[in-house]
Design a protein around this nucleic acid. Structure first.
Length: 494
RNA sequence: GCGCCCGUAGCUCAACUGGAUAGAGCAACGCCCUUCUAAGGCGUAGGUUACAGGUUCGAUUCCUGUCGGGCGUACCA
């Protein structure tokens, strides 16, 4: 429809002698009094034509030639808007189109033929997923679905690292609990993981191996067991949320392939990496940063930045047209460095897109619930789902724009009445389903349906609202902001 | 200090990326229903969009500055 409007307006504009035709933009007015579509073109032309907008609008309208099967009325309003009212015939035609393939309604091909990799969750296997990971997981999965709906081929990838300091501490923590369980009480490592799940893993080891591990030379067997158990736990949690990963990428492989070395080497050649104080530094000052950053510590161990750069290069090497990363606000600092890195290596940084989300606060009994991972009084994603269910959990995580802080009110989520936005929508769905069931008992829909009977103002409004769905999906996908869909559903249901 | 994000009704958040009269849900207030409590129904009120400038026909939206909050600013991830 917009294309049609642009076409007829464009034709009407030919009466003016313009050096440069401004872009004709079609908008949907907020208020139904202002019609179904609107353009500000007359206001845009006020300056070049040195005439007042309303007069220009009048000239355009006078020259407008249109098919009255599409448009019922054209009005000039306000400072110079030209408003169009769609003909009912047009709406019914759209409605009929929609009913041709209802399950595809809203999908589009704006990302057709695009291969997109979306990386999310990416929690290292040091403990159960928390609510923070939950927002990440749901956001990532939903953005993936939106991209699929707009025609893309999407791969979901989980990036993790089972080496490194964190995992060592994890192994030590398990070992300490293991010794404790066998009555050989040792000191608990400083900064170790205190969560109850560590004890469970240790218990599993005691059950399996008895005292065999007392003589273990290092924490490796403990680490391995922990990783295995925790990963199983994470996978189960994701599955519970109906999230399926296509691939898991272990940071390890970057070392095995020599990609880490290669990356440093290339950066050195480019003069962007240098040695100082026994460490290798990345000249981030070249990219507008205040300080250079460390790529490889003096211990020889890389910081996370280096593998991140190598990983993104790897993703782009795999031929994806777009790589989307989902991560929390606390990780934002590495992002510019990664972009600088891959740009230096000759990749197009525009192929990397980041969805950043702000933190989640759990509100319990009307008060924010303070969480600390180290003290293990965090709320796990599983606990949250135990409390309110998987669907509601997903919904609440999507309800808000990613870049605002999210308050997850447990009481509201558990509320079974209309106060709970999830139930509000579910009721709407249930009632429609019930009407459909009743109606299909009495009527035969294989016959042609007389859509013209749907001429009550509320029915027209409903049709118009429904027709906004494809645009909503498009926006949500493009902006990677799933909450637009929820906002839409609320409008539809009300 | 510097960087990113945010500041909208009492609270939690929308506002289709620059449009016309800034919208929902809680909470509040009023009425209806009710043996009481709870729930429910109808309705009302609630705003200088943090503040000050700027850009233009038009700003919650873009730019600058100020104030306030969150997150970073590690040879942690």
């Amino acid at each position: 429809m917009n294309d049609y409007l642009i076409e007829i307006i464009g034709a009407a504009l030919s009466q003016f002698e313009l050096d440069e035709t401004p872009e004709i933009r079609i908008e949907e007015p907020k208020s139904p009094e202002h019609g179904d579509a609107s353009t500000n073109i007359a206001m845009m032309l006020a300056k070049p034509l040195k005439n007042n907008p309303r007069a220009i609008a009048q000239q355009i309208v006078d020259a407008l030639v249109f098919d009255d099967a599409n448009i019922a009325a054209v009005e000039i309003a306000g400072p110079g808007f030209i408003n169009f009212r769609f003909a009912q015939k047009f709406l019914f035609k759209k409605l009929a189109d929609m009913m041709e393939a209802p399950e595809k309604f809203g999908s589009s091909d704006t990302h057709k033929n695009q291969k997109i990799l979306i990386e999310f969750v990416s929690a290292n296997p040091t403990g159960p997923l928390t609510v923070g990971h939950g927002r990440n997981a749901v956001l990532g999965d939903t953005v993936a679905r939106l991209l699929e709906w707009t025609g893309a081929k999407v791969d979901r990838e989980y990036y993790f690292n089972d080496a490194g300091r964190q995992m060592r501490v994890l192994g030590e923590s398990v070992r300490a609990r293991y010794l404790e369980l066998l009555g050989k009480g040792s000191e608990f490592p400083e900064g170790g993981y205190e969560g109850e799940y560590i004890r469970d893993i240790a218990q599993a080891l005691v059950d399996e191996k008895g005292e065999d591990l007392l003589e273990a030379k290092n924490e490796d067997p403990f680490k391995e067991k922990a990783q295995q158990e925790i990963f199983a736990d994470i996978s189960a949690t994701l599955e519970r949320m109906d999230i399926k990963m296509d691939s898991f990428f272990n940071e390890h492989t970057l070392y095995e392939d020599g990609k880490i070395e290669e990356t440093v080497g290339k950066l050195r050649e480019l003069g962007l990496a240098y040695d100082k104080d026994g460490a290798v530094w990345f000249k981030t000052t070249e990219f507008g940063k205040e300080k250079d950053t460390v790529l490889v510590k003096s211990t020889g161990e890389p910081t996370y930045r280096l593998p991140d750069i190598a990983y993104h290069a790897n993703k782009l090497d795999r031929g994806f047209d777009l790589c989307v990363d989902v991560f929390g606000a606390d990780h934002i600092a590495t992002y510019p460095d990664v972009l600088s890195g891959i740009k230096s290596l000759g990749y197009n940084p525009e192929k990397v897109d980041v969805v950043v989300y702000q933190f989640v606060t759990i509100v319990k009994d009307g008060k924010p619930f303070k969480m600390s991972t180290r003290k293990a009084n965090f709320v796990t994603l599983d606990e949250l789902m135990d409390e309110v269910g998987a669907d509601i959990t997903r919904f609440f995580f999507l309800m808000r724009s990613p870049n605002t802080h999210l308050e997850f009110d447990i009481a509201q989520a558990k509320e079974a009445g209309e106060k709970n936005p999830v139930f509000y929508l579910q009721y709407a769905h249930a009632r429609i389903a019930s009407i459909l069931r009743k109606v299909t008992e009495e009527y035969d829909f294989s016959e042609k349906v007389e859509l013209n009977l749907l001429d009550h103002p509320t029915e027209i409004t409903l049709i118009k609202t429904m027709l906004k769905f494809p645009k909503t999906v498009g926006n949500a996908a493009r902006l990677r902001e799933p909450h637009h869909v929820i906002t839409f559903l609320n409008e539809l249901a009300s």
